[in-house]
């Protein structure tokens, strides 16, 4: 008796790997968005702060 259908496992492996790859990208994107938000916020603080310190309101 075969407990594991080897052919089926091999057949599904490709799609499972693709799903894993896609979600890895998605989770990485979520982290990047959070970091990007922080970067934009810090950039705005620094550039606006620099302008105000030069007297350009």
């Amino acid at each position: 008796m075969r407990y594991v259908d080897h052919d089926l496992v091999v057949k599904r492996m490709g799609s499972r790997k693709i799903v894993n790859f896609l979600f890895k990208g998605l989770f990485m994107l979520a982290t990047t968005i959070a970091l990007l938000a922080l970067a934009i916020l810090l950039y705005r603080i620094i550039t606006q702060g620099a302008e105000i310190s030069r007297g350009n309101f």
């Binding site: 989770f27 979520a30 968005i33």
Partner: peptide, 23 residues
């Protein structure tokens, strides 16, 4: 929620120790 949990899964399951320690 999507960004926070997505980032948590990435940092916990996919990211290397160095990336986690920095990010």
């Amino acid at each position: 929620v999507p960004i926070g949990i997505g980032a948590a899964i990435y940092l916990s399951e996919y990211a290397s120790e160095t990336v986690r320690r920095i990010v």
